[in-house]
Design a protein around this nucleic acid. Sequence first.
RNA 1: GGGCGAUUAGCUCAGUUGGUUAGAGCAUUACCUUCACACGGUAGGGGUCACUGGUCCGAGUCCAGUAUCGCCCACCA
Length: 909
Amino acid sequence: MMEKHYDAKAAEAKWYQVWETSGCFHDEPGKGEPYSVVIPPPNVTGILHMGHALNQTIQDILVRWRRMQGRNTLWLPGTDHAGIATQNVVEKALKKEGKRRQDLGREAFVERVWEWKRQYGGTIVHQQRMLGNSTDWSRERFTFDEGCSRAVAKVFTQLYDEGLIYKGNYIVNWCPRCGTALANDEVEHEANHGHLWYVRYPVVGSEKGAAGEPYKDYIMVATTRPETLPGDTAVAVNPKDERYAHLVGKNVMLPLTGREIPVISDDYVEREFGTGIVKITPAHDPNDFLVGKRHNLAEINIMTDDGRMNELAGEKYCGMDRFKCREALVADLEAQGYLDHIEDYDNQVGHCYRCHEVVESRLSKQWFVRMKPLAEPAIAAVRSGEVRFVPERWSKIYFNWMENIQDWCISRQLWWGHRIPAYTLRVNAGIGEEGRGNGEELVFVAETAEQALEKAKKATGNAALTLADLDQDPDVLDTWFSSWLWPFSTLGWPEKTADLDYYYPTTDLVTAQDIIFFWVARMMMAGIHFMGKPPFKNIVIHGIVRAADGSKMSKSKGNSLDPLELIDAYSADALRFSIALITSLDCDSKVSKEKFEIGRNFCTKIWNAARFMEMNGFGAKDCASGPDGQTAFGQSLTSDERHILWATDLACRKVNEILESYRIQDGALAVYDFFWTQICDWYVEYAKDAPDKARAFTILRDVFWKALRLLHPYMPFITEEVAHQLGYLKEGESIMRAEFPTGYTDAEKAAWGLSQETYDFVNAKREAITALRALRAEYKVPPATFVKATVATDDPKAAAEADSLKRAMRAESVEFVPAGSDLAMPSKMTAFGTVYLSLEGLVDKAAESKRIAGELAKLAGFIKSSEAKLANENFVAHAPEAVVAEARRKLAENRDKVAQLEKLAKLFA
RNA sequence: GGGCGAUUAGCUCAGUUGGUUAGAGCAUUACCUUCACACGGUAGGGGUCACUGGUCCGAGUCCAGUAUCGCCCACCA
C-alpha cells in the first residue's frame, strides 16, 4: 500500500544505495556503442553549489537517457587537487594552531594536505551522490593520484623534449598572499576608485626653484602606483609628441632617490592620457617590462615575494607593506615639493581569483608552454566540424581566444601540486666549469628523478653522480596542467588500457562558459597532441546560475542557494527537474527558492497519480501483467483511448528527438506536459468512468510505464520508487536499465486504429468540452448543477461521444443537431461543432448584453483584418495551402460567432 | 577599445527553416474541499513582442540603425 505522502528522503537514500552497490552505474568496455562523459572535476575543497547542481543534472540526464537507450555508458567522476585553494585551506587550519607552512617544512606540509584530503576530501563526492549522479564511482579519479601524476610527468617531459616547454624570465602576475605566480586568466579585474598622482621629475641640470618647488624645470608624470617609483628606470613619451621631443635623450632626476633616469620615446605611450609622460618601471608592470626590453632598461625589483618593499626601495621604505609605502612615499613627495596634485581616477585592479588579494606584477623565472603549435590543430578540429560546440556560437569565442593565444605560465610557487620534473645539477657536484658550459645551470627534465640522473650522467660523462647531486625544481605545476589531461589520464594513459581504447574519445563534455579557456580549450590541445584525437565530440556549454536579481551567486553576498538545502526541503528529484525546466543552454538562469516548488509539486502529482492507479487495482502484486506492447487492445478502442496512445507515442518520439539536440529544457517541458495534461488532466479523468474500465486501465498502465521511463533521466528516484510500487519492476530490477521508450510500432498503431485524425478528433472534442465548461462559468452555473447541452455538428462520429461528453460537461443530456442549426442559446464554436448551453432564463440580462457587445467589438476587428488578408491575392498565392485554408475557416467561424452573438444580443435586450 | 549576447504577460522564461487570433510556470481573479492530488481542479484577466526604418503578400522571427542591460577579452600609466 503506497503511503499518502511520498517520503523522498527515504526513497532517495534507499535507491542510491541500491544503484551503487548493484553496479547500475558501471559498464565494462567492450560491447555496444560507447557513450562516455568525464565530469568537470570539482575542487576537492569544494562544496556542492548551484553551478554543480546545474552542470551535473544536465550530464546525468544525458547519461541516464543514453544508458536506457542501451549505450555502453561511462560517466567518470573525480575531483581536482586545486593547488592554491587546497593549500590555502590547510594553511588556514595551521594558522589556528599558530603555525605557518614553513614551520612544518615542505614534506610534512604536503603530508598534512594529504591528511586533510583523506579526511575532508570526500565531502563533495558525498554531496554529488545526493543529487543522484549516476557516475561510475569504481572509476573515481583525483588529479593528483598516482596515475594522473604519472601522466603529468610524462606530458611535461615530452613537451620539454619537443621544445614546447621553456623556462624564462618574465613579468608575471603575482599573488603576494599566496606567494605564487598566477596565469592571466587567474586574475580577476575589478573596478577600483583610485587616484592619479601627478609627480614632478626635475630635469637634470635645472636650477633650484623657490620654496616648495625644488626645481624650476621639471616634467610631470601621472601615476596610479607611486610606490613603484623607486623602481623607475626611465620616463617615456610618445615619439610623435612635439611637446616633449626636446627632452628625449636627456635625463631626469628620480624624486627621493637622487638617481638619474633617461627620457625615452616609445609608441606605447598615449599622448592624450595624463600628461603624456609615463614612468617606466620594468620590474613592476607588464607594459613597462616590454618597454624596458625594447630600450634595454634595467629591471629593478623593489618588492619582496609577500608584497613588502625591499632594500632597493630605499632604506626608509624597506620592509614596509606596499600600500603603507604608497602613503608614506606620497607624503614624502608632497613634503619635498614633488607632488603637484592628485586626481580621482577609476581603473581596473587585478585580484587573485582564489584569495582576492591585489595582484602584483613581478619579475621572475617561470616555466612556460609554447601554445601556438598546440593551438593550431585544436582550432582546425572545431573548424572542420570534427568537434562541435552546442550551442554553436561558443565556437566563435573559442576561435577568438585560440587565435590570440599566449604562452602559458605553468609554474606555481606552491607546495601542493605536481612538482616540476626538472632537476638542476648542483654547483658542487664535481663538474668543472668547462663541463657546465658558460656557467649556466644544467637542467635535466625526466619523468622520474632516476631517469633525470641517467640523463645527467650521460650529459656530463660523470658516472659517479648520485641523486644527491640533483635538485628538483621547487615549484609545482598549475592545477590546469593536470586537468587538461583529464579525458585520457583518467582512462589510464599513458598505459594502454581497455578503458582508454574503448571510451576515448569521450562523447560529450558538459560545462559552463567560464572555463572554456581554462579547461576546454586546453583539453582540446592536449587530447590532440598526446592522443592524436580530440578528447570529445560535442562540447555542451550551459549558462550560469544566477541569483534572482541577476547577480552572481556568492557566499559572501549571501544570495546563494544551497542545493543541499533545496534537496532537504524539496527532494533531489524536485531540484533536478526544476533546474532542468529553468535551464536554457543559451543564457544564464535566474533562480530563487520558489522555482523549486515546480519540481516538488510535480513529484507530488506523480505520486498521487500512482496512488490513483494503485487504488484501482495496480499494486505491487500485479507484476504479472506485462508492460507495453503486449496487451491485445483490438480494434474496439474508444477515441479517448486512441488519443492517449497516440499522445504517448508522440511524447516518446519528441523527448528522444529533443535530447538528441541537448534541449534539456524542452524535454522537461514535453514530459511535464505529457504527464500532467495528457495523462492526469484528461486520460485519468476519462478512465475513472470509462465504458470498459478494465481496458482503460490496462492502457493507462502501459502509458504510465512509458511516462515513468521518459521521466527517469530527469527524476530518477521517484520514478524508480513508483515503478516498484506499481509492480512494473521486480525486486532486483531497476528502471535505470529499462529500455527508454521510443513509442509504438507501426503494427501496433495500425492494430489499434491510431492515427493523426483520431487524435485530432479528440482534441476537437476537448475543445467542445472546454467550451461548455466556459459557458457554464460565464453564466455562473453552479458546479453541481447538471445542464442541457446541444452540439450542432454533422460529424457522424460525434453521436458516439455523447456519453463521454455528458460526463465531462456535467450535462444531464447532450443533444445533437445538424451543423448550421440556428438556436437561440449562448454558444461557442469549436472544431467539433457549435456547443450550446440551455440557460433556462436565469441570467442578468443587462450584464450579458454588455459582455456580448464587448465580444462583438473584438470579433469585428479580427474579421476586418482577416478579410483583408484573404482578399490579398499574394497571400493566397504564396502562403502554404494549409495556412490559407485555416485562415478561411477561422474567418467563417468568427462570422458565425458574430451571427450567434447578435442573436443572443436580441435575446438579452 | 575589441568581441559575444539579451530586450516577448507583474516576475522567470519558451517561441524550430518568416505563415492560424504569440505560449508555459509563478503571481493574480472567480468558482470548487467531487471518493489520486488544494503542492489540486475548472474557467478567466493580463502582451501595440525595447525603439526607428527596411526587405516581403506577410516580420516576435530576416537586414540596418538607436537605446538600455549583461557577459567575456584587452586595457590608459
